[in-house]
């Protein structure tokens, strides 16, 4: 093995994830979560369900997310989920999932395709309504959806009334971050 020690940077181009507090809201860049897509191979749904259950991996219904002991998952499209796991233990998340699912599912590394921002605070809908047409206030906790913010296709997961995770295209992390800050200032 070469002595090549590459040092990662965050999607915002910094050494450490950024935390911004604006009034009652905090925006935190999360770099400690690994992400992969898991799509059922044709006709293998029952197998995938059984294997997921054995691996402790939740497979939530359409438009929902679910947290398991190690893995969490959110629905993306019929018979496809994004799986989250702690980065520290699952940096190579695809290898973990391949071991669990074999040829029953198609698994693709997604960690670095996205930037994840966690939005924390009361009344997040007040900010989000300036950015996205998604009806956050009416959505039950656990809802996961794709939506558009600042022209960017994002995944939005309402984990609770005061916590929303936003996955946006990693290359546009700065634009997305800026859009959120501007919208929050507009409300405050």
């Amino acid at each position: 093995m070469r002595d090549v020690n590459l040092k990662p940077i965050t999607a915002l181009g910094l050494d450490l994830p950024q935390v911004v507090t604006l009034g009652r809201w905090t925006l935190t860049e999360r770099t400690d979560v690994a992400l992969a897509s898991l799509a059922v191979r044709r006709g293998r749904l029952a197998d995938v369900q059984a294997l997921a259950s054995a691996a402790g991996l939740p497979l939530p219904p359409a438009a929902m997310s679910e947290q398991g002991a190690v893995y969490a998952a959110f629905w993306v499209t019929p018979e496809m989920w994004f799986v989250e796991a702690p980065f520290a233990s699952h940096e190579d998340i695809r290898r973990h999932l391949l071991a669990a699912f074999g040829e029953a599912a198609s698994i693709t590394e997604q960690t670095d395709a996205w930037v994840r921002f966690d939005l924390v605070g009361p009344g997040l809908a007040q900010v989000l309504e300036r950015l996205s047409n998604f009806d956050l206030a009416a959505a039950p906790s656990g809802t996961a959806t794709r939506t558009v913010l600042e022209h960017l296709g994002c995944y939005l997961i309402k984990r609770s009334e005061t916590l929303v995770s936003l996955y946006g295209p990693r290359s546009s992390a700065q634009s997305l971050h800026h859009a959120w800050v501007v919208a929050a200032q507009s409300v405050l």
Partner: peptide, 15 residues
């Protein structure tokens, strides 16, 4: 519709 094929973009996942 019956082909066993799954696709996903990885444009941003790799530098």
């Amino acid at each position: 519709p019956d082909m066993d094929v799954q696709i996903i973009s990885t444009t941003e996942a790799w530098a």
